[in-house]
Amino acid sequence: MKILVTVKRVIDYNVQVRVKADGSGVEKENVKMSMNPPDENAVEEALRIKEAGKADEIIILSIGEEKCQETIRTALAMGADRGILIKASDDVEPLAVSKIVSKVVETEQPGLILMGKQAIDDDSNQTAQMTSALLGWPQATFASKIEIEGNIATVTREIDEGLERIKVNIPFIASCDLRLNEPRYASLPNIMKAKKKPIDIKSADELGVDVSPRIEHLKISEPPTRQKGVMVADVAELVQKLKYEAKVI
């Protein structure tokens, strides 16, 4: 079985994002970029499934500008086998991403697709569900545990009420939660090896997918900022403030 894992290049999760003064977007110049965190969990899960002898090839797919190759290389250094980059502008919407993934699935025929549950830049949380609907494959979103036995997988999903378990047949698509696993660090020898692994580059045009945006960003603005409040000396003062000043208890 092949596993297809999608990875997105995003502003590193530790970076304090700054809104541009002209409202056209956020500052991306000289800002550290990394793999979207839950995508790392998706890569890790694919590696573990392969190491358990349940898959034989892991393909990493990224969509975006030329530099997304770095993100693919990171996944290859973790242990994935080869990469595919579909070149497009860096703000392809989930709708177009799901169409591109579906096209890649036609040629690659994986038995499993793993994605991060949400990209930490646009926070859309859509792509896995859309891809599932397009392919007609079952979806297992927000997965915190994936157990595969033969052709059947039992997936534990994190939902607002707690945990839910579902059973799905292969092929299926899972969106991964941060609690699915602990992603590994790439070792130096593996980083060197990854440089020789192949990355196939195509454009969205070649796949016949229209990536023109449907949503226009009229303005990106700073959220209202909170004023730093006061420091209290002890618990007694805190309770007095909450009771008589803020009047919330």
Partner: peptide
């Protein structure tokens, strides 16, 4: 194209939604 997690409505096709963990607010028109 779905518009996720709106926090305000400007008009029938324009909405405000948080991005980057709420570190920015996007006014989007579909």
């Amino acid at each position: 194209a779905q518009i996720s997690d709106i926090v305000n409505i400007e008009s029938e096709d324009t909405f405000i939604r948080p991005i980057y963990a709420g570190n920015a607010l996007a006014t989007v028109k579909t």
